[in-house]
Design a binder for these strands. Sequence first.
DNA 1: TGCCAGGCAAGCC
DNA 2: GGCTTGCATGGC
Length: 302
Amino acid sequence: MRQVSIEGIRDFDLDHIFDCGQAFRWNRRPDGSYAGIAGRRIANLRFDPCQQGGRLILSNVTDEDFNGFWKDYLDLGRDYGAIKKELAAKDPVIGRAIGAGQGIRLLRQDKWETLISFILSQNNHIPRIKKCIEALCCQFGEKAGQLDGEVYYTFPAPETLACLEPEDLVECRLGYRAKYLIGTARKVAADGLERLETMGAPDVSAAEAFEYVTSFPGVGPKVANCILLFSMGKYDCFPVDVWMKKVMNDLYGLESVKEISDFAGRTYGSYGGIAQQYLFYYVRQISRRQSADPLTLENRRK
DNA sequence: TGCCAGGCAAGCC
DNA sequence: GGCTTGCATGGC
C-alpha cells in the first residue's frame, strides 16, 4: 500500500489528538494506530515515538496527498513546543494539564462538517456523537472508498441535508438536534458555502466569524467557539462546556462562563484555544481514572 | 437504574 | 439582561 513516513515529529501523540473531542471520525485500532476520513481522503496513521522526535507513518497516502493536505490538516507546521513554553510561562497552573496532553495538535478541519458535528454535540456524549455522525454519513454521504475492509462515506453536502425533513433523519437518532441540522443546512445552502468558508480567512476576526456562525439555528456560544477553533484557525477562542467549568473551578476557583472566558482571554492570550484543549484532555483523563479506580479518594468518601 | 453529556432556545422576571 | 426549563437519546 502507498505510504508516507515522516521523521523527527515532536509534540505529537495520536491518542491526545484524536481523543480530545475535536474530531469524531477517527477510530483507534488495536495496534494503536488511528483510521479515519477527512473530505474524501481515507488514511491510517501510526506513530512511533522516540527521544529525538518520532516517526509518523501515513498509510493509504501519497507524497502529493501528504504535502497538499495531511501536513496542513495535522497542523505539522506549527511549533507546539514553543506554544507550550509560552503558556507555561504565562500561568504556573496549566503545566500539569500540558503534561497530560503534551501531544495534542489542533486539526484544521472542514468548516461545514465541523459546524454540523458540533450542532450534534450539544448535550450529548462523545461516543454517541460519533454514532450520530457515522449514521448521517452512512445514510446521506457518498461512498468514498475502503480501507482494511471498512467502507468509508463522505460527510453529506449542505444541499443534500437542506432538502431533508426531520422524519428523514429518525434513523440517525439525532433527537431534537435534527431540526437544528436541517435549519442550518438550509441557511448554508441559501447563503452559499463560500460565505462560511471565507470566515476562516486570517483577515476575518474571531468576533465577525462568531457573529456569523451563531446566526445558525442550534449554534450558541459554546458550539460557535468550537467551530472557530477547530476549523477556522481562531486560536484565541475558548469553548466552555461542562468539563471546562469543572476544571476551571478545580484549578482556579472560577464559577461562571463569563468569569472563565474573561480569565482565559487575560491569562492565555492568543493561544487560549490550545490551552483549552490541554485542560479539556486533562480533566477528562482524571475523571476516567477515578471511575476506573474505585480506591481514589473522591470515591472512597461516598 | 438513574444520571448526565463538548448546550441551545424560549419563556420568565 | 440574567435565570430557569424543556429537550431526545443512550453510554456509563
